[in-house]
Amino acid sequence: MASNSRGIGTRKKIVESVKAEIIAKGPAKTSISAITSRIGITRSLFYHYFADKEEAVSAALDAVIDDFVNDLILWDKKHRSAEINTALTDLAELLIHIVREDGPFREGLSLGGGEDLYLRFMDRTARQISAHFTQLGALRAQTQNTALENIEDTVYVLLVGLVALIRTTPDISASTVRLLLAQSLHVQNFIR
């Protein structure tokens, strides 16, 4: 059992090293040597966990996305019985926080030829969050009696648009994001 937990720990250290290298140098300049040097392991140990750099980078993307999804799950647990305006305000603040907090990683992805990787990251993030979003108790009751169809795809489009809006409008308020969420999701009884 101890060997398995050490293996999980080593894999996690490699993923954290990949994230740090991407932030520091961008994906194109991130090398297996730099990843392994950062945490003091051999290349052969790296290859025990990952077939190549691309697989390790993909694992790093998944780790960042998992953090976002976990934030969303925690939000849902806090707001299942909350009044909808409070839940939407906190969700808007969470989205702003996620976009602003992923700044160093996102910026690292777009360094030196990583634009395609950044687009894949954004797409995977929006897909994962929209898939979980449809299961959230805090909003499910508010949206299930609306005329919305394809709610998961609607949330995906909404997230992609909100991320772009938040990135390009740094001073956007949580109340504006809350209003956009409510209007887009046709939340009933929404009060400004």
Results as ranks from 00 to 15, higher is better:
P104L: 02
I129N: 03
D123C: 04
Q128F: 04
S184K: 10
V18E: 02
E101K: 09
L136H: 02
Q128W: 01
V160R: 12
L179W: 03
T42H: 15
S130M: 05
S5E: 15
I22S: 02
A92H: 02
I151F: 07
I39D: 05
L119S: 13
I84N: 03
V15I: 15
H79P: 02
S3T: 13
I166K: 10
K13I: 06
T86V: 12
S5C: 03
E21L: 08
R43S: 10
K53W: 12
S110D: 14
L159T: 05
M122S: 10
A174E: 13
A28H: 12
A138K: 04
I8L: 09
A51I: 10
G113F: 09
A174I: 03
G40T: 08
S173F: 06
S33T: 12
G161Q: 14
I41Y: 06
K12Q: 15
E93A: 09
L61D: 03
A56K: 00
S33L: 10
G26D: 01
V163Y: 12
N4E: 14
D76E: 08
T36D: 12
R38A: 08
L88K: 04
L119R: 15
H79F: 07
R6V: 12
S58E: 12
L158I: 15
E107Y: 07
I166W: 08
Q142L: 00
R178H: 04
K77V: 06
K13H: 14
G7I: 06
G40D: 13
F46S: 02
I73R: 13
E93S: 13
G108L: 01
G161W: 11
G161H: 13
S110H: 11
V155L: 07
L117W: 01
E149H: 12
E55I: 10
R127K: 12
P170D: 10
T168L: 10
S44F: 09
I22D: 02
F121A: 00
F133D: 02
G26F: 03
K25F: 15
A24E: 09
S184L: 07
I14D: 03
R106W: 11
L45F: 04
N4P: 01
T89Y: 08
Q183Y: 07
G161Y: 10
P27R: 04
Y49Q: 04
D71Y: 07
Q188F: 00
K77P: 02
L179A: 11
I32C: 02
L91N: 03
D102M: 04
L111Y: 09
A126D: 06
G108Q: 00
K78A: 15
T146I: 05
R11I: 08
K19G: 00
A174C: 08
L95E: 05
D90H: 07
L74C: 11
G9N: 09
E55N: 11
T42Q: 13
A34L: 12
E101H: 09
L179C: 00
A60H: 01
D66T: 07
N4Q: 14
S184Y: 07
D171F: 09
T134C: 08
Q142T: 07
D102I: 01
E16I: 02
R43P: 03
R120A: 05
A60G: 09
V99E: 07
T30W: 01
